[in-house]
Design a protein around this nucleic acid. Structure first.
Lengths: 110, 110
DNA sequence: AGTCTTTATCGTAATATTGCAATATAAAAA
DNA sequence: TTTTTATATTGCAATATTACGATAAAGACT
């Protein structure tokens, strides 16, 4: 074994897990936070910002893109990566929903 | 190589990534959602709920506990696992903060 | 005491992730 | 067209994760 048994869980649970996995590495968190505060979003800037080699950063960008957390537009010679607002809005709502449910529960256990 | 270069990132970025990693598996998302809706929080119930063997579930529970997303109290013979509200509140605020920053940016790029 | 029930841990095989050097690709500049 | 610049891909070694059978540990119940 060793592979995640995705088929046994709901699409929703797999989607959440996949999105979380994309943020389960400090480099990818750093990329997201950089895109959030920077004016530009050129790949080269991100590579310069991070303490990792260019191929490694490229791989992390690919994973963020696969998870639809960012999108990349060709800008002449380079690529402009930007945050995909929809996915982050989804995450925000997911945790806001959890907070509401927790509020309703009000520690009625443990 | 193969190990994450945590030392090159901020404590905050590593903390976020670690918390996300704990939710980067559908079984752990399912556990969280079960604890959110269930009245009880006994380990055995979780094992019955999930399509995985008992040792596997135990391992996932341990990871959620290490990430401080849940806590486990001994209840006689069994263990009562509950959601750690503080960590989920932290996550909710993290994504709410991102949403605010995105609002301010208002798509001024790409 | 012995037995049952519940949960954790160990050991290990299968698979996935991380990181980077080397190389490929493709548009821009000369 | 050649060269430079920017990014992606390939290949591979090191490490981490996932899953589970076997077994251990610890409280509950005769």
């Amino acid at each position: 074994m060793g592979a995640t048994k995705t088929s046994h869980f709901t699409d929703r649970q797999n989607k959440v897990a996949t999105t979380m996995k994309a943020l389960a590495h400090p480099a990818r968190v750093a990329i997201l936070e950089y895109l959030l505060k920077a004016d530009a979003c050129i790949c080269g800037d991100i590579v310069n910002e991070l303490p990792l080699a260019q191929p490694t950063v490229s791989q992390h960008l690919k994973e963020l893109k696969n998870a639809e957390l960012i999108k990349g537009d060709v800008a002449g010679n380079s690529i402009c990566y930007c945050i995909n607002e929809k996915s982050l809005e989804m995450l925000q709502k997911y945790f806001a929903g959890i907070a509401v449910k927790l509020e309703k529960k009000k520690n009625n256990c443990c």
